[in-house]
């Protein structure tokens, strides 16, 4: 009797384990097929959007294929946002017509409203990549005071992109300091030619955020003409962060860093800031004698080794 019970028990266990395995395999296969079809759909949408952007004939846009399918609108929104981030020029009208024909803007807005935390920030960042209407920008204004810094930043970016004429005002009245990532995100929009901002007025602005943006532009484009403005910030500015960023900008452009103003400011820096600057100088290819003038006494040996290592790697690469 016990043997029969044991056999039945083993058979049931085996059957349950096999059923669970089959279910897990089925789910894995289904997820894989879904991911593959999503990838193919994204590829198809990117190609369609690109072709429309190249051959813009101003004709009314029809709804994209498979757009009614579950998950297709998310794929289309991502494809539109990615293509918009990587392109510049006069394609805003086409993107706007694609969005209107497929209801992308309303869908993204609805998703942003229903999501929380980083999910909402993600949908807002997609909206900020697209040419949205002013009514959308007004709607997302409610997230400007969010506790999540990503949400409030991307809500601000939606407002900036929707109304570029007011960009300077919106950026300067943003109540929090931009992080490096946020400054880079604004610069990426600027590179697409969407914001009417000039660099030099940003450098002389009293707002820390606008100054940080100006310094980022100088570093990114290697604008050696801005040297005068950088030296003004280094010698006169009271904000330590601005001064540090200005010195880094000078180093990024390979301008002389042993001037009196810069040396005086570097001496006032904390040890970690000084070390970070010296590492940057070594990375940019400044000579050991220059770095030694700026490095703290206790760091000199470390800097010598660091410079030697950078030089060696440069020679090897050549």
């Amino acid at each position: 009797m016990m043997t029969v019970i044991y056999i039945v028990y083993s058979a049931v266990c085996f059957a349950v384990a096999a059923a669970l395995l089959v279910v897990a395999l089925h789910r894995a296969c289904k997820a894989r097929i879904a991911a593959r079809s999503e990838r193919l759909l994204a590829q198809r949408y990117v190609r369609m959007i690109t072709a429309l952007l190249i051959s813009d004939e101003g004709a009314p846009m029809s709804r994209f294929a498979f757009c009614g399918r579950r998950g297709a609108k998310s794929v289309l929104a991502r494809a539109l946002a990615s293509v918009s981030r990587s392109t510049c020029g006069d394609g805003c009208g086409v993107v706007r017509r694609i969005m209107a024909a497929n209801g992308v803007e309303g869908w993204l807005l609805g998703r942003a409203r229903r999501s929380r935390g980083y999910g909402r920030a993600r949908y807002l960042s997609m909206l900020a990549s697209l040419p949205v209407s002013v009514s959308t920008a007004n709607f997302v204004g409610r997230y400007a005071g969010s506790r999540n810094r990503h949400i409030r930043f991307w809500a601000m970016m939606v407002r900036v992109v929707a109304d570029p004429a007011a960009a300077l005002y919106v950026l300067s009245t943003y109540p929090h300091r931009f992080t490096a990532y946020e400054t880079a995100a604004i610069t990426a929009v600027l590179r697409r030619g969407l914001l009417p901002l000039a660099c030099y007025p940003l450098l002389t602005s009293p707002s820390h955020n606008l100054k940080a943006l100006g310094l980022n532009i100088v570093r990114m484009f290697g604008m050696a003409d801005a040297e005068r403005f950088l030296m003004d910030i280094i010698s006169d500015d009271a904000d330590r962060d601005d001064v540090r960023e200005a010195i880094f900008a000078v180093a990024a452009m390979h301008l002389p860093v042993t001037r009196g103003e810069i040396v005086a400011r570097v001496r006032g820096m904390s040890l970690s800031e000084r070390r970070s600057l010296c590492r940057r100088l070594a990375c940019e290819g400044y000579s050991a004698s220059v770095i030694m003038r700026l490095a703290a006494n206790r760091d000199r040996h470390y800097m010598e080794t660091l410079v030697a290592s950078y030089k060696r790697s440069l020679v090897c690469c050549g």
Binding site: T87, C88, G89, R191, F221, G222
Partner: peptide, 27 residues
């Protein structure tokens, strides 16, 4: 990349053209 050093380095390396993102699709 949009830094002059990087672009010059690539061109000296033998690259015929360097095009920076974001690109104008028609161009």
């Amino acid at each position: 990349h949009q830094s002059e050093h990087t672009v010059l380095g690539l061109l000296e390396f033998g690259v015929n053209q360097y095009i920076a993102f974001p690109v104008n699709l028609r161009r």
